[in-house]
Design a protein around this nucleic acid. Structure first.
Lengths: 142, 142
DNA sequence: ATACCTGCAAAGTCTTTGCCTTAGG
DNA sequence: CCTAAGGCAAAGACTTTGCAGGTAT
């Protein structure tokens, strides 16, 4: 099943015009095997890849794969952290344009608080809070 | 109302042992006025602050304010972007420990997809997707 | 053959710190 | 006064790019 996924993804890459190199295969395999997202450093230092290729290669592969929509880049939009005042009782989720970077607050009630409570009880995590962001292309950039 | 918020927040800062300086007041005021989160650069280059103090000052203030729980730092946890394979029909949300950085996938059904559709219709954004992360202190780090 | 990939090393971009001066309380 | 805060400039931490040589197709 995971083996299939590797082939499927490599096929996608081929269709996208990428050559089938060892680095590419191993990168994809590593991502498939991992059950959570990985950073450039995680990947480049992973035993699968660290001997096999340079970090610049991993970087460029990830870059291409993001553009082709094969992988998704999470967090670090605009390469910087965002800060916001922490006002008790107030919570904001956001809608962000992946093209122009425009950020707007969402005024719909956040549907996540209930789940947050459940997670607290189920996992034993304390001081829970969440971040919810929607990304897409805004009408102007379409 | 917003004026009150400024005073309330400055009071918090005072309780936290911070001195009331021009830079601090203006930083808070700027954050209150903004309706979405701002980066270090946004703040430091903002007309309110750019002439008033150095970026290092803004940086240090934000750092203290985060520690005191007056502001929250969004995104860029671990100072790096995360990558994940984009498998159609599969979607993962995450639970992350703010102490040790442990990331685990959440297996509860994601309660956000419905809202995502509504947002698409209401705003005209296309290609919508979302990122949802829960943060807290894991049992081991408590 | 000929694009495309890579490794290496250098250049960028921001963040973070050290140190000495300034100024709240 | 005494200690926290701020300015300036240097140091870090990663990311990103240029170039010369290797490789899949």
């Amino acid at each position: 099943m995971q083996k299939d996924q590797l082939e499927v993804t490599l096929e996608q890459c081929k269709d996208a015009g990428l050559r089938r190199t060892k680095a590419l295969s191993m990168l994809i395999e590593t991502l498939i095997t991992s059950d959570s997202p990985m950073t450039l450093a995680d990947l480049s230092d992973h035993k699968n890849l660290t001997e096999l290729c340079d970090r610049a290669t991993v970087f460029r592969l990830l870059q291409k794969l993001s553009n082709k929509g094969v992988v998704r880049r999470l967090g670090l939009h605009e390469r910087a952290a965002y800060f916001t005042l922490l006002i008790p009782g107030r919570h904001q989720d956001f809608l962000i344009c992946t093209d122009c970077g425009d950020i707007q607050p969402i005024n719909a009630p956040c549907p996540v608080h209930q789940l947050e409570k459940e997670i607290a009880t189920n996992t034993g995590y304390t001081s829970l809070y969440h971040e919810l962001e929607f990304f897409g292309t805004c009408p102007t950039c379409t």
